[in-house]
């Protein structure tokens, strides 16, 4: 206290100067309209700045909840998208009928067979010839073998092994993995296959040479796949090479839309009719 008093006495001239300056500036900003307005807007911007920072700090602590909400929202939107796509596909065949009777039949809006489970990748490899990943959902979350795995950008792989809390997926970047696809603009079906090397590029195989291919066309899942909904994005055609000797198919390079380097949030695709389709497929094998 004494030292404080000493300081006040020592710097009394300076403190008096500050005091008179404060009175002057108070008068300036209190009694001049222009200065009052500038002061008001300046204070408002300072308050706004601090409020914004405060809000961003608070938001940071709520990120986990927000992320969860967004994932659930994404699932809802995905389901709606698939539902709409199916309705559109159905409408293509039903329109003559509806025109005739001037009604839209209920079957125009079929119930979607696909639903999604959000999950996270906890381990992933991309540099081996046979890549796998592990996700943080298992049998207790309703995960089973042969479920499709997608990200918000495109196809990721399929589940091949499950435990109670975790599951292993075969990555699209696995030489064993083959996926039935189609080219968006021509609807021509082919198979996507990764041949190793570049984790961004896959090959679209079995497209006959007489089919014209356009660089930039989208490649998506076809209706032949039991694991993924039809029309799910896989990538874009970036190059068409000369076919290998004696083969009647194009060598098509596809740039994957999924970035496997930073893959984190994924969705498991649940096909309600999968077991039914599997049984029928086994029957086909028996017929052969």
């Amino acid at each position: 206290m004494e030292r404080l008093l000493e300081l006040f006495i020592k710097y009394n001239n300076f403190l008096f100067f500050i005091f008179l300056q404060w009175i002057s500036l108070f008068l300036v900003f209190r009694f001049n309209d222009f200065h009052k307005e500038v002061y008001g807007s300046y204070m408002l911007s300072i308050a706004g700045f601090f409020q914004e920072k405060n809000h961003s700090i608070r938001s940071y602590f709520l990120l986990a909840d927000e992320n969860e909400k967004l994932l659930n929202e994404n699932i809802k939107l995905k389901q709606e998208l698939i539902y709409t796509q199916q309705a559109l596909n159905a409408a293509r065949y039903r329109i003559p009928y509806s025109r005739k009777f001037n009604i839209l039949p209920d079957s125009l809006f079929p119930v979607s067979v696909y639903s999604f489970i959000p999950s996270k990748i906890v381990q992933n490899s991309i540099y081996d010839p046979y890549n796998y990943f592990i996700i943080n959902k298992g049998t207790k979350d309703g995960v089973y073998n042969e479920m499709g795995v997608v990200s918000s950008d495109g196809v990721v792989g399929i589940i091949v092994e499950t435990s109670e809390n975790y599951s292993v997926g075969m990555s699209l970047l696995n030489k064993h993995f083959r996926l039935s696809t189609k080219i968006k603009s021509t609807n021509i079906h082919g198979t996507v296959h990764w041949r190793g090397n570049n984790p961004k590029i896959v090959y679209l195989e079995y497209i006959p040479l007489h089919i014209p291919i356009q660089v930039g066309d989208s490649v998506m899942t076809s209706s032949y796949s039991n694991y993924f909904p039809e029309g799910y994005h896989i990538g874009k055609i970036i190059d068409v090479k000369d076919p290998k000797d004696g083969q009647g198919f194009h060598e098509i390079l596809v740039l994957l839309s999924t970035d496997f380097y930073k893959l984190e949030n994924i969705y498991l695709v649940k096909n309600k009719h999968q077991s039914e389709l599997k049984t029928l497929n086994q029957k086909i094998i028996q017929f052969k």
């Binding site: 300056q21 108070f26 209190r30 001049n32």
Partner: peptide, 18 residues
């Protein structure tokens, strides 16, 4: 302050004078 009052711009001359 006296000059400020005469031009109705309170405080500006006072601050500059100090």
């Amino acid at each position: 302050i006296l000059v400020d009052i005469s031009i109705l711009k309170l405080g500006i001359h006072a601050s500059s004078s100090i």
